[in-house]
Design a protein around this nucleic acid. Structure first.
Lengths: 139, 139
DNA sequence: CGAAAATTGTTGTCGAGGTCAACAATGCCG
DNA sequence: CGGCATTGTTGACCTCGACAACAATTTTCG
């Protein structure tokens, strides 16, 4: 049962979609011990590397809606991983921070995510992996 | 306001996700005149290139759930683009086909999708575009 | 200064998609 | 024939993106 992909074979979006699903599934599997999704991981990483930034800045950096971020932070707050402090300068803003528990979880998440990233290289071929990472980072 | 991506800078999944969103948005924009989503386009293309195949085969090829495909086909049927004929050999199967209208719409969709694909090359750089397409197709 | 406009965080709602369980109809195979 | 697998289908649930609206606050400008 050989099936023809037709013009899909010439569409970058099709292949990007396929590999994206594949990579995310492996990520989710690797991080399942601490129950952190790709989106949650990206939020924790950016807060950890930019303590005190605002929700608008975070949302803009990750390319997600402010409305979406509010609900993600609500979850992370409830899990005790993040907190929103009032910004001294601007009464509208919240200064985002990781709690101690958040820092610990992020450290674990980074270790598991690094393991996931290492998984990818043999599957894709180490050369292709590096090629893709470099090409996409500069894109 | 410069924000540090932290370890995200070393994660392929992050960049794949970013470009996937970007490519799909352009695709949706380009095909908005005929209101065909990326998923619908892939379904029409595969049916067009493999007339008579079954829903299971189609779902497996595109990597989507049978349950999901049923509802997509229901939409496309209602729009008069596809039809499910009883399979002569196997009473369980449906033989999928494009209607005349479906063939016409697919032809238009291919033209618009080709336009979208052409858009991508200057944005990514023509060299990087080809590099990515080749690397992902073989992955 | 003070009114208008912009920003920030928030909530509600809608739709697209993925996931899983269950089911009827049909085919396969010992 | 009788169990077992496959196929299409439906229902339910969840995540996520997109929009609209809103209150509180800040900024801008006449």
């Amino acid at each position: 049962m050989v099936i023809d992909l037709g013009v899909l074979d010439n569409h970058l979006g099709y292949f990007i979609r396929r590999i994206q699903v594949w990579v995310f599934q492996d990520f989710i599997r690797c991080l399942s011990p601490i129950d952190i999704s790709p989106a949650q991981f990206s939020v924790l990483v950016i807060i950890g590397a930019n303590e005190g930034l605002s929700q608008s800045e975070l949302a803009a950096t990750l390319g997600i809606e402010r409305a979406r971020l509010v609900r993600m932070l609500h979850q992370l707050d409830r899990r005790g991983l993040t907190e929103r402090l009032p910004s001294s300068a601007d009464g509208r803003r919240h200064a985002l921070r990781l709690t101690r528990a958040g820092q610990t979880t992020l450290k674990q998440a980074k270790a598991l995510a690094a393991q996931h990233e290492t998984n990818l290289q043999p599957k894709l071929g180490a050369d292709r992996y590096r090629l893709l990472l470099d090409a996409l980072r500069d894109a």
